[in-house]
Simulated scan of single mutants.
Amino acid sequence: MKIQPVIMSGGSGTRLWPLSRRSYPKQFLNLVSNRSLFQETVLRLSGDASLFSAPLIIAGRDHAELVETQLKEIGIDAADIILEPCPRNTAAVAAVAAAWTADKNPDALALLSPADHHIEDKNAFHRAIKDGAVAAAKDHIVTFGIQPAHPHTGYGYIQSGNDVCKHVYEVAAFKEKPDHATAEAYIKSGGYFWNAGLFLFNSKSMLNELDQHAPDISAAAKQSLKECTEQGNARMLNEKEFSACPSDSVDYAIMEKTDKAAIVAPVDIGWTDIGSWSEASSESSDHVISDCNDITVRSSGPVIGAIGVDDLIIVATGDAVLVARKDCAQDVRKVVDELKRRGREDLL
């Protein structure tokens, strides 16, 4: 069965400030290779015509040109580019994706994938998709459980339950981001996996679950797609309808309520969501680093010099500099929140 990739590219990446900005968020940055995270994601879900259809891109309203430029750079044509007039979280995106797929590619399974994650082992990922497709073809809504490498407190966890089919299990429970002791207990007990925010489903099954468990989201999202307008090579969802859509995640709106939730696990693909600077690679070309250990250095402007410091993040642009301990990487959004409070729109 064909897979319809749906690339969710509406995120803002506030924890990757100051490089990640509203006008150029993290998915369009080169953080782990010489291609952007968005480009890496599209390429990972392309190339095998027997498995993947051309990707559907769902992005923020101001990023149509970025999407088109970066697709052109890697030689990929999108099946469609749909723009969100305002952010409404992943459940609304899932509803739009399911409605579009049901109409344009009804025989395919939709794979909802964030644009800003990194996966090292593409072949293992494709094998996991094929495992999940067996369950999705039977109307399960499938997510992917990443084999935990350590007791991470920045990820949600999923507990696996009874067998569904080979490498696929019922979801026993979704767990919020834990404290360190709880994360250690999850690792020790086994059967708990990082929640990667990837979803594979039959579009009709997803639409049925949305109608049942999140009817307001379903109705608003589908109507916004029905009343979308052309914007160059992209299409803009109807702003009135989409802005009225409740904001909720797929996890809360659907997965924690449906009896069709399933998980492929364990998925060992070298996954990270690049959720903070501690997970991004460091630059080394022009910077001067001496007697330093475990520091991340990035700059889109000035050369950085660092001497005798450890466990630091140093990120510079033409108008801002971030310096933080690595154990505070998840708190960078506090800087963004403070800048919002001060009305510094020029730095957001």
Score class of each variant (00 low, 15 high):
residue 1 M to D: 10
residue 4 Q to D: 05
residue 5 P to A: 04
residue 7 I to D: 03
residue 7 I to P: 02
residue 9 S to I: 03
residue 14 T to R: 12
residue 20 S to L: 01
residue 21 R to C: 00
residue 42 V to A: 00
residue 43 L to I: 05
residue 45 L to Q: 00
residue 53 S to G: 14
residue 56 L to D: 01
residue 61 R to Q: 11
residue 62 D to M: 14
residue 64 A to L: 15
residue 68 E to G: 07
residue 72 K to Y: 02
residue 76 I to K: 05
residue 76 I to C: 05
residue 77 D to H: 12
residue 84 E to W: 01
residue 85 P to V: 05
residue 99 A to K: 14
residue 100 W to H: 13
residue 100 W to R: 08
residue 102 A to N: 13
residue 111 L to I: 10
residue 112 L to E: 04
residue 115 A to D: 05
residue 120 E to K: 14
residue 122 K to N: 12
residue 123 N to S: 13
residue 124 A to N: 10
residue 138 K to G: 10
residue 141 I to Y: 09
residue 142 V to A: 09
residue 148 P to H: 00
residue 151 P to L: 00
residue 151 P to I: 01
residue 152 H to L: 14
residue 152 H to T: 08
residue 159 Q to A: 12
residue 160 S to D: 07
residue 166 K to G: 04
residue 168 V to W: 06
residue 173 A to C: 08
residue 176 E to V: 06
residue 177 K to Q: 13
residue 179 D to F: 00
residue 179 D to W: 02
residue 181 A to T: 08
residue 185 A to N: 10
residue 186 Y to C: 06
residue 190 G to D: 08
residue 195 N to K: 09
residue 197 G to F: 03
residue 208 N to K: 14
residue 208 N to W: 07
residue 208 N to D: 13
residue 209 E to R: 11
residue 218 S to A: 13
residue 219 A to I: 12
residue 222 K to S: 11
residue 225 L to P: 02
residue 226 K to H: 12
residue 228 C to R: 15
residue 229 T to A: 13
residue 250 V to I: 15
residue 257 K to M: 03
residue 263 I to F: 07
residue 268 D to R: 12
residue 279 E to W: 09
residue 280 A to V: 13
residue 281 S to L: 15
residue 282 S to C: 04
residue 287 H to Y: 02
residue 290 S to K: 15
residue 302 P to D: 13
residue 309 V to M: 14
residue 309 V to P: 07
residue 312 L to N: 10
residue 333 R to P: 01
residue 337 D to W: 04
residue 337 D to I: 02
residue 340 K to A: 12
residue 341 R to D: 13
residue 347 L to M: 09
residue 348 L to E: 08
